[in-house]
């Protein structure tokens, strides 16, 4: 069973598009507030398609930081994408060509990755293109609107939109926890670790980009040791 419908990709990408619109709206306001023009803000969103990295990058650019500082900040914050790309590589159909991987890689965000891997079977390039294009539009459109018209929305509404992305994460995680006890254990370990990095004074100095990858690797390792997948053909796309 392989999912390769462009239309299905678009449909699956819609919720991400809506969530991104809300978050990038806030990013647009932030970027202009830091002294960037609306065009610069939109260019950053179109070419990066990542929330945390952009939020960290803009003050460095606006403050005239060094290129090295900018590159290191992105490497640290975005290192989790490497892990996701390895995971996504196993989810792609064998028909996906090398040059198509170069395109799909651009759109491997937290949410697109999560939705793609939540598919029961393998996914093809056309499905991935659909799944990427709607979020890209939402992300760029939201940035543009936030940059040029950020002050038309009351602050309280912008604040409320801040939970949109997390709401989406919860909608992805909770059904899997309901299905598999092992997923619940894995999520529990990840949460405990990320709380430790947040609240334990000695650990809270670690940059948040590092903490996510440390938490994820540790939790997934423990879960893999405790609950290895059943030995069978095509175990990567079980269920």
């Amino acid at each position: 069973m392989e999912q390769n419908s462009f239309k299905k990709g678009i449909v699956d990408g819609l919720p991400i598009c809506v969530g991104y619109f809300a978050v990038s709206f806030a990013f647009g306001i932030f970027a202009v507030g830091q002294g960037l023009t609306w065009l610069e803000a939109v260019l950053i969103s179109v070419t990066n398609l990542t929330s945390a990295g952009q939020l960290a990058g803009v003050p460095i650019i606006a403050g005239g930081g060094t290129f090295a500082e900018l590159a290191v900040s992105q490497l640290v914050i975005n290192s989790r994408y490497s892990l996701m790309s390895v995971s996504l590589s196993q989810k792609l159909s064998g028909k996906v060509k090398l040059w198509q991987r170069f395109i799909i890689a651009f759109g491997n965000t937290d949410e697109i990755f999560a939705v793609a891997t939540a598919n029961p079977g393998l996914v093809g390039s056309r499905y991935m293109y659909g799944l990427i294009i709607t979020p890209v539009l939402g992300w760029s459109g939201g940035t543009l609107l936030g940059a040029v018209a950020g002050d038309i929305l009351p602050a309280i509404v912008v604040t409320s939109l801040g939970v949109a992305i997390y709401g989406m994460f919860i909608a992805i995680v909770v059904p899997q926890i309901k299905r598999e006890r092992s997923a619940a254990v894995c999520a529990g370990i990840a949460v405990a670790l990320s709380c430790a990095f947040y609240f334990v004074p000695a650990l809270s100095k670690v940059p948040s980009g590092f903490t996510i990858i440390i938490c994820a690797i540790a939790a997934a390792l423990i879960a893999a040791l405790l609950f290895p997948l059943p030995r069978k053909e095509g175990a990567a796309d079980d269920k």
């Binding site: 999560a114 994460f169 995680v173 997923a183 949460v191 997934a220």
Partner: peptide, 25 residues
């Protein structure tokens, strides 16, 4: 395609681990 069972299990748990750690706290 990765064949190693442990590595496959690890990659299976990566999405849920990443999303959980990013959401809470």
């Amino acid at each position: 395609k990765i064949e190693n069972r442990f590595l496959l299990s690890f990659l299976h748990y990566v999405p849920i681990a990443v999303l959980s750690a990013m959401t809470i706290p």
